[in-house]
Simulated scan of single mutants.
Amino acid sequence: MTDALPAAEGLSVTPADTPADTPVGLSIVVPVYRGAATVGALVEALSVLRPAGGLEIILVNDGSPDNSAEVCRALAATATVPLTYIEHARNFGEHNAVMSGLRQARGAFVITMDDDLQNPPEEVLRLYDHARLGGWDVVYTRYAVKEHEGWRNLGSRFANGVADMLLDKPKGLYLSSFRCMSALAVREVAKYSGPYPYVDGLLMQVTQRLDSIEVKHLPRAEGRSNYTLKRLVLLWLNLATNFSVLPLRLAILAGAVMGVMGIFAAAYVMFEGLSGETPSGWASMMTVTLLVAGVQFLILGVLGEYVGRAFLSANGKPQGVVRDIVTSEGRRS
């Protein structure tokens, strides 16, 4: 049961699992977190676009601690294009918010983008037309120059390098949150109900019709990135443990390597004993002990992460809890 606020004139509150039936050409899904200062300008810029087949905007407030909820409700009340506002009961994470938005999208194609205006709204039509006219299921964007902080760019390169190893994707394809997906890809991705979604990992399992185009990337208009080092590490764990068994195989390899090293170390100790020398052996013993113990704890940690995620999934940890959904069909200007 939702505790939605009364709907304003021109708005309606829609059950969380019942998107409107009338299709449009393009849906734009925007996860909102600390975006009160920028989401209004973004919606205004998107509202003037005229993509083939029509446009709808979906805002997903992922438990933002600022007044994003009030701003988004006001935007829904005055929208000149169909706009859906989804409110999460708490913060679940960007990819969880995107999943909630995808389930409400009606578009033949769906674009996801951030609320910080670093993705220029005028690039939306280029991205949409490239996917639509080229018959691609997914088109990612790449940047000639990224206007993120240095550590964030380094983290992105690391995550994409790991994705090259873990995911079945074209090597070097940059995984950006500014992406366009076909209705087919969106429909299949939205079927995932686990608590740890990674949209790009799901897309790689759905289709191989992938492409990318280069777009502009602007400096952040307000504030600073909501992605902390902790959030980036958690996102990497979603990638590493939800969509690949490679970490388990690396753990097996590490165990095998340490086993071989142990055999050589044992042979060396026996040789020393037979040679008649009587070294203390303390340093070599402690070195081998610490190496073996470290690898064992690493393996246990990897196994524990898999088991813990399986446990939480089996116990029904929610992917996202939608408090209410407000829809507006837009006001003709």
Results as ranks from 00 to 15, higher is better:
G150Y: 02
P82Q: 09
V145R: 14
T78S: 15
S100Q: 03
A74N: 14
L127F: 11
Y140K: 04
I86W: 01
N67A: 14
A159P: 03
L102K: 00
Y174M: 13
H88S: 07
L166G: 07
F178G: 06
L133N: 12
N91L: 03
M165S: 14
K146W: 08
V162L: 15
D137G: 07
T141N: 10
N96E: 02
L173K: 05
F158M: 12
E149N: 07
D62S: 06
R126A: 13
T84I: 09
R106I: 02
I86N: 01
A144K: 13
H130L: 11
Y85P: 02
L154F: 11
R103C: 01
P121K: 12
R157L: 07
M165D: 15
R152G: 00
H88R: 08
S176W: 03
R142S: 13
A69L: 15
C72H: 05
L102T: 00
H148S: 12
V145G: 02
A105K: 03
R152F: 10
G63S: 06
V138D: 04
A108T: 00
G107M: 01
R126V: 04
L75N: 12
N61C: 10
T141G: 12
G161N: 14
L173I: 15
L133Y: 04
R132N: 08
K171D: 08
Q118K: 15
D129A: 13
G150V: 11
L83V: 14
E149K: 10
G150F: 04
P65G: 09
M99C: 00
N153A: 10
A89M: 02
S64R: 05
R152C: 03
S100E: 05
L127E: 12
A76I: 07
L175G: 10
N91M: 04
E149T: 12
S100V: 00
C180D: 10
Y85R: 03
A163V: 09
P82N: 09
L125E: 11
T80V: 11
R73I: 06
G155N: 12
E122G: 13
S182H: 06
Y140A: 05
L127N: 12
C180M: 10
H88W: 01
M181Y: 05
Q104P: 00
M181W: 02
G101R: 00
G135Q: 09
A159I: 14
R90Y: 05
R152T: 10
G155C: 11
A108W: 00
S182N: 06
E122H: 15
R73P: 00
R142M: 07
G101M: 01
R106N: 01
P65E: 05
Q118P: 06
N91C: 08
Y85A: 06
K146I: 14
P170Y: 12
L75K: 12
G107C: 01
R142H: 11
T84A: 06
G135C: 13
A69P: 00
T141V: 12
